[in-house]
């Protein structure tokens, strides 16, 4: 029985909670404006993840700086078919990486994919029970609790970021007189990448696309640069939908995907009705015989 729906109705957080509590095994596929995510689970733990078909070991090790291209090329030549398990073994035997390097890279990638998808507000999803990850991939089981907790924190932070930087269709420029001492500012690789695209012609959404950053990451970086007085917003919002965010800010998530307010559930067992118990017994007897 495949579970289908849309993230705007049932959030990924809710789905992960469902997978965890029901200890499900299978594949959850999400297709949104930002791409396609595949998450594989075994008995309630996430074991493999891919965003737009990525997730192969070679790419991960390169991405996280654990391997150099020439090392990879040397080992790839010896492989008869693309197989992460064989590749991993050969890389370990060649002394290029350790088993821990591989496990850490896979774990970090899985976390990144899930956290990226947690920021998506819409997208079609379906869960296919018992579908296993591609056999050429290495599976690393990760407890969903920590991911869901981090996802919750991210959602709250994202809501704050959206309040401070509501529109991604604005351009940035460097301030003429930075308010802080530039020598004290330390920038990460991603932040430098964003800086390289800052230009009054590039919107923040475009910079995110060029830099391969998701909505959460680009908002956080841009706000850090703005708070440090390095950049400022120019131009007026265009009113077009941002390329990174699929929807307008919708406030703080409750964590359940449900709006706050409405009638509050009592949370305790119901009270007996004001009729005789014998009446209920008569109803039961009659309906049984219908």
């Amino acid at each position: 029985m495949a579970l289908k729906g849309r993230l705007r109705d049932i959030s990924l957080n809710q789905l992960l909670n469902l997978v965890k509590l029901a200890r499900k095994t299978g594949a959850l596929t999400i297709e949104g404006e930002q791409g396609r995510v595949e998450l594989y689970f075994k008995e309630g733990k996430v074991v493999h993840a891919s965003l737009n078909g990525d997730g192969d070991l070679a790419r991960l090790l390169l991405k996280f700086g654990r391997l150099q291209e020439q090392q990879l090329r040397a080992v790839l030549q010896q492989l008869s078919a693309p197989d992460d398990k064989e590749l991993g073994l050969r890389l370990i035997n060649a002394g290029y990486v350790s088993k821990n390097d591989i496990l850490r890279a896979i774990r970090r990638h899985t976390m990144d994919v899930v956290l990226t998808a947690l920021a998506w507000e819409d997208g079609k999803f379906h869960f296919e029970p018992n579908k296993a990850p591609p056999p050429e991939r290495i599976v690393v089981p990760i407890n969903l609790d920590s991911i869901v907790r981090e996802g919750d924190q991210r959602q709250k932070e994202l809501a704050t970021l959206r309040e401070e930087l509501p529109d991604l269709n604005v351009a940035l420029r460097f301030t003429e007189n930075p308010s802080t001492n530039l020598s004290k500012i330390k920038l990460s690789r991603d932040e430098w990448r964003v800086i390289s695209f800052i230009n009054p012609r590039n919107t923040i959404a475009q910079i995110a696309k060029y830099s391969g950053l998701d909505e959460f990451q680009i908002r956080r970086i841009v706000l850090k640069l703005m708070r440090n007085g390095l950049v400022e917003v120019v131009g007026r919002p265009t009113g077009r939908a941002p390329a990174v965010s699929s929807a307008a800010p919708q406030g703080v998530s409750t964590g359940t995907g449900l709006p706050a307010g409405g009638g509050a559930p009592s949370g305790h067992r119901p009270k007996a009705p004001a009729v005789e118990k014998s009446v209920v017994r008569r109803l039961i007897k009659f309906i049984r015989g219908l």
Binding site: L3, K4, G5, R6, R8, D9, I10, G257, L258, P259, G262, G263, A264, P265, S266
Partner: peptide, 17 residues
Amino acid sequence: SETFREAKQIIDIFRSY
């Protein structure tokens, strides 16, 4: 599944009565 959220709200409302 798009109606589950509404169902939850209905349950909450009826339980509040």
